[in-house]
Design a binder for these strands. Structure first.
Lengths: 194, 194
DNA sequence: CGCGACGTTGATTTGCCTCAACGATTGTGG
DNA sequence: CCACAATCGTTGAGGCAAATCAACGTCGCG
């Protein structure tokens, strides 16, 4: 049973951490639901319940919260090879604090929590894959938290340029500002100086 | 085979997420190494390799980075029932960016990465336990990151008081300041106003 | 073509930091 | 048990990074 093209990206990602048999792979892929979103379309709105976690095949998503003054704060971008959702809502089935929206036209593979948990029972190695993903995501998030506490706005911008070189000149400045935690005006000044 | 007293705290924690057989439990507990640290003693210094992850039985630990100006920034406190380490170093065996130090006399249970991975193979349910821990830790860290981006210093202090009521009047003000990301002087002013 | 989203720039404000001085508390060695 | 140092919390004066508010030019797109 040949995997369809969008699944290949995920299978490549999987096999960097675990190896599955043909059967296990088929079982897993059968639960993945391909889904396309166009720029500015939502995978999840603030206040909804996050049914699915989404693997990004192509394109780019953003996960963000809107504060009481209506300003967006981007928790993370998800580029190809990353999973994205409101993890808190995905796990607890409470209302999400985050919205997940396409920054550009994006191909996704969706996996529901119930399917995921069922697969964990059938394929222990898949639980290992997600355990590793969670570990890595936690390390990344901890590092970002420390950066926010220790670095200046300029340094955070420079770090962003190193971490997301493929985005720097491809997405609006205001999105970068909202990710590194400054106003668009101030980021513009940062760029202007040197 | 009766578990010793310090292990009981961990077993209680475990059983909130998974259930192990007697044998599995014994196998797991055999790899845990009790360890005591006195106030201001280190479990891990910046630049060392994190051999172990530590479960806090009693007391309190802090994980923090020291910036180029010599200021401490506390990533997290670990009170009884929490695991603590420099996760990045624990996984990759590179030099740790964080130090882990006792805020007060503390009882720990240590588990090395190699023992942990070995146990994952022998007891898949244990991998589930840590998968769940990682999920929850990631949710917590993401929320803290968003708080840092959206809240004022005063609001972050109020949130701290709600999240760690058992610590607020028990640890030095400067530690709280270093956790919420302000100077001790400014936190003092926050407390003074109302 | 006209409108809205975007990036830039200037003037002003502000939240928080820096530096410095000062009591109060803790703890430590003699 | 005391003397002294160290750590801690507080307060004041001044400074700076970044936010705010506002105006304006540009561009992409319906």
């Amino acid at each position: 049973m040949p995997a369809s093209i969008p699944h290949d990206t995920l299978v490549a990602n999987l096999s960097r951490h675990i190896s599955l048999s043909e059967d296990e792979l088929a079982l897993f892929c059968a639960r993945l639901r391909p889904h396309k979103v166009k720029r500015k379309e939502f995978l999840l709105r603030q206040g909804e319940i996050a049914r699915d976690s989404a693997f990004v095949v192509s394109g780019c998503m953003k996960a963000y919260a809107t504060d009481t003054n209506g300003f967006e704060h981007i928790l993370r971008f998800a580029t190809p090879g990353w999973w994205v959702s409101d993890l808190s809502s995905f796990i607890t089935k409470r209302q999400s604090q985050l919205a997940v929206e396409a920054v550009r036209d994006t191909q996704l593979l969706l996996l529901s929590r119930s399917d995921q948990l069922e697969l964990f029972d059938k394929i222990p190695k898949l639980e290992r894959y997600f355990r590793i993903l969670m570990e890595n995501a936690l390390v990344t998030t901890q590092m970002r938290l420390m950066d926010n506490m220790t670095l200046t706005a300029r340094e955070r911008y420079q770090r962003f340029c190193r971490m997301y070189p493929e985005l720097v000149n491809e997405i609006p400045l205001k999105l970068i500002a909202s990710f590194i935690g400054v106003t668009p005006e101030f980021l513009s000044r940062i760029r202007a100086a040197k």
